[in-house]
Every structure is written in structure tokens, then in C-alpha cells.
């Protein structure tokens, strides 16, 4: 699991990172909102832990900006103790959870686990629209402007992940979590992305899934 930690206090950031790494997470650090935004736009994270008070761009603005870009990576906000307004504003802006400083590391770990476990890339929406297509979550019907096609459950889940993170490279390791054959991971990823590309082409989608060094990414045609 890959987490982005956005915290401007270097000592605190280092301490949180060490603890998360010890618990088995891969942690990437950002020290202000702008640096975090650039990272989020181009990389896939399973979760984001972000402070609110930060230089250049505060945590709430960062959250609003990424949600506006249809990136719905789960976000845990770290708020100053007792700042009810911060908590309310954060949740309204699309935070999945918050934790007041100072906090016990054990609680932070529990909240991160819970946030990632309960995250679903489709949320409560009935469909995802992206580019020229619309994907129904109830039936996994993939519809273009003048034709439609049915996707299997697995294909639907994989495509949802891409459509909810359209600017990011989805790493191979993340895609493996959708796969069934442990002995044929790479081939299975290749097969499923190729199946999805055939089906996107069939409904005349204006994008496809492109293979890059570290994973696959939505690419405009």
C-alpha cells in the first residue's frame, strides 16, 4: 500500500513516516500543498494523510482541488485540536476522515487501515462518466455515444479504478490486486487491459489504457 504524507513539520513527518513504514506501508512525503498536488496528479496512492495548516497551499484547498479534478483517493486530514470548523470544512470538502493533533500513533494506524478498507473507487454514484463514455456501476454497461457493450465484473472494477484516477499511472502492483491467477499476474494484467481496450474501441471511446514503465494510465486518442 502506497501512502502520501503531506506535513510541513519535518520532525513530525519523519516520525509518522517511520511508524507507517514499520507497519508495512510505502510512504512518500510532501512538505507543502503545491508539492503534494503535483505528486497526486501524476501518481497513484492508496491513501493520503494531510495536515491542514501548510505553506503555499493549505490542506483544505489541496483537498478541494483534487476532488474538483475527479481524483477520489481517500484522504485523512490532520486537524489542530479542537478546531471544529476545520473538521466540518474538511469533511464537506471531501475528506474521508480526520484526526485531531496530538494523536496516538495507534489511532492513526487504525484510521488509515479503516479508510483504505472502506474505500470504493465508485463511491455512491450510479455511473462514472469520462471522455466520450459512461460506465454504469449497477450493470457494468459501458456506453459510448451510439453503442454500448457489457463488461464483466472484473473488467468493470478495473475500468472504474482508471476512470476515477484518470491522470495517474496505476501501478502494476495495484492492478494485481484485481487478478485471480497468482502464477500469471503479468499476462493477466496484459490480457485484461487488452480486453478493455478492445471494448473501449468498440464504443468509440476517445481514450485507451496505455502501458508505461511502472503501470497503466488513461491516454487520450
Amino acid at each position: 500500500m502506497r501512502l502520501l504524507l503531506v506535513e510541513d513539520e519535518k520532525e513530525l513527518s519523519r516520525a509518522i513516516k517511520s511508524m507507517l513504514v514499520l507497519s508495512g506501508y510505502e510512504v512518500i512525503q510532501a512538505f507543502d500543498g503545491e508539492e503534494a498536488l503535483a505528486l497526486i496528479e501524476n501518481n497513484f496512492y492508496d491513501g493520503i494523510i494531510s495536515d491542514i495548516m501548510m505553506p503555499k497551499m493549505d490542506g483544505i484547498t489541496l483537498l478541494k482541488t483534487i476532488r474538483k479534478k475527479n481524483i477520489d483517493t481517500p484522504v485523512l486530514l490532520l486537524t489542530a485540536n479542537g478546531q471544529v470548523e476545520d473538521k466540518v470544512e474538511g469533511l464537506d470538502a471531501g475528506a474521508n476522515d480526520y484526526l485531531s493533533k496530538p494523536f496516538a500513533f495507534k489511532e492513526l494506524l487504525a484510521r488509515v487501515r479503516s479508510m483504505i478498507k472502506h474505500y470504493s473507487p465508485i463511491g455512491e454514484n450510479t455511473h462514472i462518466s469520462y471522455g466520450s463514455i459512461k460506465l454504469s456501476i449497477a450493470t457494468y454497461e459501458l456506453a459510448g455515444k451510439e453503442s454500448s457493450i457489457m463488461l464483466s465484473n472484473k473488467e468493470g472494477k478495473i475500468l472504474s479504478l482508471f476512470l476515477k484516477n484518470p491522470t495517474q499511472i496505476i501501478p502494476f502492483e495495484k492492478l494485481v490486486s484485481f487478478m485471480s491467477c497468482l502464477d500469471a499476474k503479468d499476462k493477466e494484467i496484459e490480457l485484461y487491459t487488452s480486453i478493455l481496450n478492445n471494448k473501449l474501441d468498440a464504443v468509440n471511446a476517445n481514450f485507451k489504457l496505455a502501458k508505461l514503465n511502472k503501470g497503466y494510465k488513461v491516454a487520450s486518442l
Binding site: 454497461e141 454500448s148 457493450i149 457489457m150 464483466s152 480486453i195 478492445n198 471494448k199 468498440a202
Partner: peptide
Amino acid sequence: DEMSSTDLTMQ
């Protein structure tokens, strides 16, 4: 739509 989907999977 389902049969077309199977066609493209087979492809």
C-alpha cells in the same frame, strides 16, 4: 451487447 463483449474478449 453481451455477445459482442464476449467476441472482443475472445479476440
